[in-house]
Write a protein that binds this DNA or RNA. Structure first.
Length: 356
DNA sequence: CATACGTGGGG
DNA sequence: TCCCCAAGTAT
């Protein structure tokens, strides 16, 4: 009587028991086995931060957030401007606005406790298909299909899925659901992601070290790197604009204003800047200045976004009186706490290098 | 289904 | 320098 080989999930979980990454928001498998479950607030916060963002980048932000706002109610009570200020530099700022809105919803409509199922989590702002499944699995051990970029890669290789992403995602989700065990689904989800992050990597995957290689069709065919097949991406256009840094001579404070709530860098702070237009027209010059002053050119900041490249001409001027329009003076020692995106920090560095 | 939406690190 | 990509979501 032949003995059935272990299922994929068992092989993976045994590997995870020995090789799980140690992460600030994670309860290790041995502790989970002893009945310790993670704080849903920390799971949620980490998942939002990790959307399209590397673990290395997230760690310091996560530490600052949980130190400053230990629970979801603390975060809900914070002014949005403070949350945006703490998020500055992480990118995708809609995440921060949704994070705050979600905290307030949990505090006011759920009594300060996160919903416990993927379906109910899915209704909260900033929580989509992936994040709802991840929180449900990791914080509440619901056997939900958790499909992030790592899992897309692992599963597309396991089954040698030829359908290019994003169309192939449907089949990947179905396959992931079939692989997900009823026992330890939270560890299984984290194990899949750890495997994708450390062994089943985009280039040069370490198939020799892979605990589920015997289950993998792409490895058997000797072509793991061709998966996942992806649709070619469009080329990114260029845009150009101008930023105007008004400086108060006395203390070196700069004049900032708040950007529109929606759109690029929504809700974040900036020195007044023009619209960013298609780059055919060359330098805008001071015609786009928000008010007349002795504007002096001080270089061009280049910044790459996901869907376009930006060249931002920077001008500076010493201003004694308050400029027209809404805004505030921000001295250099206050810049750390301002909701300044990285682009705008580059602008300030170009305009006021002496104060940095 | 396609597009908008940041940033930093690695090859 | 440039391209890819990293625990995606909203519209």
């Amino acid at each position: 009587m032949p003995i059935a080989p272990p299922p994929l999930s068992q092989d993976l979980l045994e590997w995870y028991d020995r090789h799980a990454r140690t992460l600030p928001w994670r309860v290790p498998p041995q502790a989970r086995a002893a009945g310790i479950m993670p704080d849903p607030y920390r799971v949620w916060l980490s998942e939002i931060m990790l959307q399209q963002t590397t673990v290395a980048t997230v760690k310091s932000y996560f530490a600052r957030f949980v130190n400053r706002w230990p629970g979801v109610t603390d975060l809900a009570e914070a002014p949005e401007a403070e949350v945006l200020g703490a998020w500055a530099g992480l990118g995708y700022y809609a995440r921060a606005r949704n994070l705050h809105a979600c905290a307030r919803t949990v505090a006011t409509e759920h009594g300060g406790a996160f919903p416990t199922t993927a379906a109910t989590l899915r209704a909260l702002p900033g929580i989509g298909e992936y994040t709802s499944a991840a929180i449900a699995a990791i914080a509440f051990d619901e056997p939900a299909a958790v499909v992030d970029g790592n899992v897309e890669r692992v599963v597309s290789r396991l089954f040698a899925i030829e359908t290019p992403l994003p169309a192939g995602k449907k089949e990947i989700r179905i396959r992931t659901g079939e692989l997900t065990p009823d026992l330890r689904p939270g560890d299984f989800a984290q194990a899949m992601m750890d495997l994708g992050a450390t062994i089943c990597t985009p280039t040069r995957p370490g198939c020799i070290l892979c605990p589920i290689r015997p289950h993998c069709r792409a490895a058997a065919e000797g072509r793991p790197e061709v998966f996942p097949v992806k649709k070619p991406k469009a080329e990114v256009p260029s845009r150009r604009g101008a930023a105007f840094v008004a400086i108060r001579p006395g203390d070196g404070a700069v004049w900032l204003r708040k950007r529109a709530t929606t759109g690029m860098l929504g809700g974040m702070s900036e020195p007044p800047s023009s619209n960013w237009n298609a780059r055919s027209d060359g330098e805008l010059g001071t015609t786009a200045a928000p008010f007349p002053a002795g504007w002096q050119a001080c270089g061009t900041v280049l910044h790459g976004f996901t869907h376009f490249k930006l060249a931002l001409d920077v001008y500076r001027a010493d201003i004694e009186h308050d400029p027209p329009g809404a805004g505030w003076w921000s001295p250099p020692e206050a810049w750390d706490g301002e909701a300044l995106p990285t682009l705008m920090r580059k602008v300030l560095a170009a305009a006021a290098p002496a104060t940095r």
